[in-house]
Amino acid sequence: MILLYTLAPQWGIGSISPACLKLETWLRMTKLTYQTAIATLEDFEIAPKGKLPFIRYGDRLFGDSTLIIALLKQQESVDLDRDLTASERAISVAFRRMVKENLYWGGVYIRYCIEENWLAYRDTLRELVGQGLSDPEWEAIAQGIYDSVRSQLEGHGLGRHSDEEIVQIICEDIQALSDFLGDKPFFLGDRPTTLDATVYGYIANYIRPPYQSPMVDFALARSNLCQHCDRMAEQYFPELLV
Protein backbone atom coordinates (compact mmCIF):
# COMPACT_ATOMS: atom_id res chain seq x y z
CA MET A 1 0.00 0.00 0.00
CA ILE A 2 1.15 3.51 -0.84
CA LEU A 3 0.33 6.23 1.69
CA LEU A 4 0.76 9.69 0.18
CA TYR A 5 1.41 12.59 2.54
CA THR A 6 0.11 15.69 0.79
CA LEU A 7 -1.32 19.14 1.37
CA ALA A 8 -5.08 19.47 1.15
CA PRO A 9 -7.14 20.31 -1.94
CA GLN A 10 -8.04 23.94 -2.47
CA TRP A 11 -9.26 26.18 -5.30
CA GLY A 12 -10.69 23.18 -7.17
CA ILE A 13 -7.34 21.40 -7.50
CA GLY A 14 -6.04 18.34 -5.69
CA SER A 15 -3.36 20.11 -3.64
CA ILE A 16 -1.98 23.59 -3.02
CA SER A 17 1.46 22.05 -3.50
CA PRO A 18 2.49 21.67 -7.16
CA ALA A 19 4.71 18.67 -6.41
CA CYS A 20 1.97 16.96 -4.39
CA LEU A 21 -0.54 17.53 -7.18
CA LYS A 22 1.94 16.23 -9.75
CA LEU A 23 2.53 13.02 -7.79
CA GLU A 24 -1.12 12.33 -7.03
CA THR A 25 -2.00 12.95 -10.68
CA TRP A 26 0.68 10.45 -11.71
CA LEU A 27 -0.66 7.89 -9.22
CA ARG A 28 -4.17 8.27 -10.61
CA MET A 29 -2.88 7.96 -14.16
CA THR A 30 -1.13 4.68 -13.32
CA LYS A 31 -4.17 3.36 -11.41
CA LEU A 32 -1.93 2.29 -8.53
CA THR A 33 -3.80 1.81 -5.26
CA TYR A 34 -2.95 4.50 -2.74
CA GLN A 35 -4.35 6.40 0.21
CA THR A 36 -3.76 10.02 1.18
CA ALA A 37 -2.85 11.55 4.51
CA ILE A 38 -3.39 15.30 4.72
CA ALA A 39 -0.14 16.48 6.23
CA THR A 40 0.09 18.32 9.53
CA LEU A 41 2.95 20.46 10.78
CA GLU A 42 4.19 17.44 12.74
CA ASP A 43 4.46 15.38 9.55
CA PHE A 44 7.17 17.70 8.25
CA GLU A 45 9.35 16.42 11.08
CA ILE A 46 9.30 12.88 9.65
CA ALA A 47 9.49 13.89 5.98
CA PRO A 48 12.66 12.31 4.53
CA LYS A 49 13.57 15.46 2.61
CA GLY A 50 11.94 17.86 5.05
CA LYS A 51 9.22 18.69 2.54
CA LEU A 52 6.12 17.36 0.81
CA PRO A 53 5.16 15.13 -0.80
CA PHE A 54 6.47 11.94 0.70
CA ILE A 55 5.10 8.43 0.85
CA ARG A 56 5.07 5.48 3.19
CA TYR A 57 5.77 2.44 1.05
CA GLY A 58 6.10 -0.81 2.90
CA ASP A 59 7.79 0.06 6.16
CA ARG A 60 9.84 2.97 4.78
CA LEU A 61 9.36 6.64 4.01
CA PHE A 62 10.46 8.10 0.67
CA GLY A 63 10.61 11.76 -0.35
CA ASP A 64 10.74 13.92 -3.50
CA SER A 65 8.07 13.48 -6.17
CA THR A 66 10.55 12.72 -8.97
CA LEU A 67 12.40 10.10 -6.95
CA ILE A 68 9.13 8.58 -5.73
CA ILE A 69 7.93 8.18 -9.31
CA ALA A 70 11.23 6.53 -10.28
CA LEU A 71 10.92 4.15 -7.31
CA LEU A 72 7.33 3.17 -8.05
CA LYS A 73 8.03 2.73 -11.76
CA GLN A 74 10.62 0.14 -10.85
CA GLN A 75 8.87 -1.54 -7.94
CA GLU A 76 5.36 -1.61 -9.42
CA SER A 77 6.35 -2.10 -13.09
CA VAL A 78 4.39 0.91 -14.32
CA ASP A 79 5.64 3.36 -16.92
CA LEU A 80 3.47 6.08 -18.42
CA ASP A 81 6.32 6.82 -20.83
CA ARG A 82 6.84 3.29 -22.13
CA ASP A 83 5.75 4.14 -25.69
CA LEU A 84 7.91 7.25 -26.05
CA THR A 85 10.91 7.32 -28.35
CA ALA A 86 14.34 8.14 -26.97
CA SER A 87 13.98 11.66 -28.37
CA GLU A 88 10.57 12.11 -26.75
CA ARG A 89 11.92 10.88 -23.42
CA ALA A 90 14.71 13.44 -23.64
CA ILE A 91 12.21 16.21 -24.36
CA SER A 92 10.11 15.05 -21.41
CA VAL A 93 13.06 15.13 -19.03
CA ALA A 94 14.12 18.59 -20.20
CA PHE A 95 10.65 20.10 -19.80
CA ARG A 96 10.07 18.41 -16.45
CA ARG A 97 13.35 19.80 -15.13
CA MET A 98 12.42 23.28 -16.37
CA VAL A 99 9.06 23.08 -14.64
CA LYS A 100 10.39 21.69 -11.37
CA GLU A 101 13.59 23.69 -11.09
CA ASN A 102 12.55 27.05 -12.56
CA LEU A 103 8.82 27.49 -13.14
CA TYR A 104 8.17 26.29 -9.58
CA TRP A 105 10.12 29.21 -8.15
CA GLY A 106 8.00 31.65 -10.11
CA GLY A 107 5.01 30.23 -8.26
CA VAL A 108 6.88 30.68 -4.99
CA TYR A 109 7.54 34.30 -5.90
CA ILE A 110 3.84 34.86 -6.60
CA ARG A 111 2.77 33.52 -3.20
CA TYR A 112 5.54 34.87 -1.00
CA CYS A 113 6.91 38.04 -2.61
CA ILE A 114 3.72 39.91 -3.52
CA GLU A 115 2.43 41.20 -0.21
CA GLU A 116 -1.31 40.87 -0.76
CA ASN A 117 -0.82 37.34 -2.09
CA TRP A 118 1.32 36.35 0.88
CA LEU A 119 -1.26 37.64 3.37
CA ALA A 120 -3.99 35.60 1.65
CA TYR A 121 -1.78 32.51 1.31
CA ARG A 122 -0.78 32.74 4.97
CA ASP A 123 -4.46 32.57 5.89
CA THR A 124 -4.93 29.55 3.62
CA LEU A 125 -1.98 27.79 5.23
CA ARG A 126 -3.44 28.42 8.66
CA GLU A 127 -6.75 26.89 7.62
CA LEU A 128 -4.98 23.81 6.29
CA VAL A 129 -2.14 23.16 8.75
CA GLY A 130 -2.43 25.73 11.55
CA GLN A 131 -5.81 25.01 13.06
CA GLY A 132 -5.79 24.83 16.83
CA LEU A 133 -2.83 27.15 17.21
CA SER A 134 -3.11 30.44 19.03
CA ASP A 135 -2.54 33.64 17.07
CA PRO A 136 0.98 34.16 18.49
CA GLU A 137 1.90 30.51 17.83
CA TRP A 138 0.73 30.69 14.24
CA GLU A 139 2.37 34.06 13.60
CA ALA A 140 5.71 32.66 14.74
CA ILE A 141 5.35 29.57 12.54
CA ALA A 142 4.17 31.58 9.53
CA GLN A 143 7.08 33.98 9.88
CA GLY A 144 9.47 31.05 10.04
CA ILE A 145 7.98 29.54 6.88
CA TYR A 146 8.13 32.91 5.13
CA ASP A 147 11.76 33.56 6.07
CA SER A 148 12.83 30.04 5.08
CA VAL A 149 11.11 30.16 1.69
CA ARG A 150 12.41 33.63 0.88
CA SER A 151 15.92 32.43 1.74
CA GLN A 152 15.50 29.40 -0.54
CA LEU A 153 14.27 31.64 -3.36
CA GLU A 154 17.37 33.79 -2.95
CA GLY A 155 19.58 30.71 -2.84
CA HIS A 156 18.03 29.32 -6.00
CA GLY A 157 18.96 32.53 -7.79
CA LEU A 158 15.59 33.66 -9.11
CA GLY A 159 15.04 35.78 -6.02
CA ARG A 160 18.14 37.83 -6.83
CA HIS A 161 16.50 39.31 -9.93
CA SER A 162 14.26 42.35 -10.22
CA ASP A 163 10.49 41.90 -10.42
CA GLU A 164 10.57 42.65 -14.13
CA GLU A 165 13.35 40.15 -14.77
CA ILE A 166 11.53 37.41 -12.86
CA VAL A 167 8.39 37.99 -14.92
CA GLN A 168 10.43 37.83 -18.13
CA ILE A 169 12.16 34.58 -17.16
CA ILE A 170 9.02 32.77 -16.01
CA CYS A 171 6.88 33.94 -18.91
CA GLU A 172 9.48 32.51 -21.29
CA ASP A 173 9.03 29.13 -19.57
CA ILE A 174 5.25 29.36 -19.84
CA GLN A 175 5.47 30.36 -23.51
CA ALA A 176 7.78 27.42 -24.22
CA LEU A 177 5.23 25.02 -22.73
CA SER A 178 2.41 26.60 -24.72
CA ASP A 179 4.39 26.55 -27.96
CA PHE A 180 5.35 22.90 -27.55
CA LEU A 181 1.83 21.81 -26.60
CA GLY A 182 0.34 23.58 -29.61
CA ASP A 183 -3.00 22.07 -30.54
CA LYS A 184 -2.17 18.58 -29.24
CA PRO A 185 -4.41 17.18 -26.48
CA PHE A 186 -1.33 16.18 -24.46
CA PHE A 187 2.29 17.22 -24.62
CA LEU A 188 3.63 14.16 -26.40
CA GLY A 189 0.62 13.12 -28.42
CA ASP A 190 -2.79 11.62 -27.86
CA ARG A 191 -1.99 9.92 -24.55
CA PRO A 192 -0.95 11.67 -21.31
CA THR A 193 2.48 10.91 -19.91
CA THR A 194 4.57 11.90 -16.90
CA LEU A 195 5.17 15.28 -18.51
CA ASP A 196 1.43 15.99 -18.50
CA ALA A 197 1.16 15.11 -14.81
CA THR A 198 4.06 17.44 -14.07
CA VAL A 199 2.85 20.41 -16.09
CA TYR A 200 -0.67 20.05 -14.72
CA GLY A 201 0.58 20.05 -11.12
CA TYR A 202 2.46 23.29 -11.59
CA ILE A 203 0.37 25.24 -14.12
CA ALA A 204 -2.86 24.51 -12.23
CA ASN A 205 -1.19 26.05 -9.18
CA TYR A 206 -0.56 29.18 -11.25
CA ILE A 207 -3.99 29.65 -12.77
CA ARG A 208 -6.42 28.28 -10.14
CA PRO A 209 -5.44 30.16 -6.94
CA PRO A 210 -6.92 33.66 -6.60
CA TYR A 211 -3.55 35.45 -6.70
CA GLN A 212 -2.63 38.41 -8.86
CA SER A 213 0.57 38.58 -10.91
CA PRO A 214 1.63 39.34 -14.48
CA MET A 215 2.83 35.73 -14.63
CA VAL A 216 -0.63 34.46 -13.74
CA ASP A 217 -2.17 36.73 -16.37
CA PHE A 218 0.32 35.46 -18.93
CA ALA A 219 -0.51 31.82 -18.16
CA LEU A 220 -4.26 32.50 -18.27
CA ALA A 221 -3.82 34.04 -21.72
CA ARG A 222 -2.36 30.74 -23.03
CA SER A 223 -5.67 29.06 -23.81
CA ASN A 224 -4.11 25.73 -24.76
CA LEU A 225 -2.44 25.43 -21.35
CA CYS A 226 -5.71 26.28 -19.61
CA GLN A 227 -7.54 23.71 -21.72
CA HIS A 228 -4.86 21.15 -20.88
CA CYS A 229 -5.47 21.79 -17.18
CA ASP A 230 -9.21 21.39 -17.70
CA ARG A 231 -8.64 18.15 -19.60
CA MET A 232 -6.43 16.70 -16.87
CA ALA A 233 -8.83 17.75 -14.11
CA GLU A 234 -11.83 16.24 -15.89
CA GLN A 235 -9.99 12.98 -16.44
CA TYR A 236 -8.24 12.54 -13.10
CA PHE A 237 -9.96 14.77 -10.50
CA PRO A 238 -13.63 14.84 -11.54
CA GLU A 239 -14.75 14.96 -7.90
CA LEU A 240 -13.26 18.45 -7.55
CA LEU A 241 -15.05 19.98 -10.51
CA VAL A 242 -17.78 22.46 -9.67
Rank of each mutant, 00 (worst) to 15 (best):
I2L: 12
L3M: 14
Y5E: 09
Y5C: 08
Y5H: 11
T6E: 09
Q10Y: 09
I16A: 05
I16K: 02
I16E: 10
S17R: 02
A19I: 08
C20E: 13
C20T: 14
C20Y: 02
C20I: 06
L27F: 06
K31L: 12
K31C: 11
Y34F: 13
Q35G: 15
T36F: 01
E42V: 00
D43S: 02
I46Y: 01
A47M: 05
P48S: 01
P48K: 02
K49F: 00
K49P: 14
G50H: 04
L52W: 04
P53L: 00
I55H: 05
Y57F: 10
Y57L: 04
G58I: 07
G58L: 03
D59Q: 10
R60C: 07
L61W: 03
G63P: 11
G63M: 03
D64P: 12
S65H: 02
L67R: 13
L67P: 13
I68T: 10
A70P: 13
Q74I: 01
Q74A: 12
E76T: 07
S77F: 04
S77D: 13
S77L: 08
D79M: 01
L80K: 00
L80I: 05
D81W: 02
A86R: 11
E88L: 06
I91V: 15
S92V: 04
V93L: 15
A94L: 14
M98K: 07
V99C: 04
L103I: 05
W105K: 00
G106M: 05
Y112T: 12
I114N: 08
E115V: 02
A120T: 12
A120N: 13
A120Q: 14
R126G: 09
R126M: 10
R126P: 11
L128S: 10
G132K: 02
W138I: 04
I141H: 07
A142K: 00
Q143I: 02
G144I: 07
Y146A: 11
Y146I: 09
V149Q: 07
V149I: 12
G155Q: 15
H156M: 07
G157W: 10
R160W: 07
R160H: 09
S162A: 13
S162D: 11
E165G: 11
E165V: 11
I166A: 03
E172Y: 03
I174H: 01
D179M: 08
F180R: 03
G182R: 05
K184S: 15
P185G: 02
P185K: 02
F186E: 00
D190A: 07
T193W: 00
L195S: 03
A197C: 06
T198L: 07
N205K: 09
P210G: 00
Q212H: 14
D217E: 14
F218T: 03
F218A: 03
A219W: 01
L220Q: 13
S223C: 10
N224C: 01
N224R: 02
L225I: 07
C229W: 05
Q235Y: 06
Y236D: 12
F237C: 04
L240Y: 01
L240F: 06
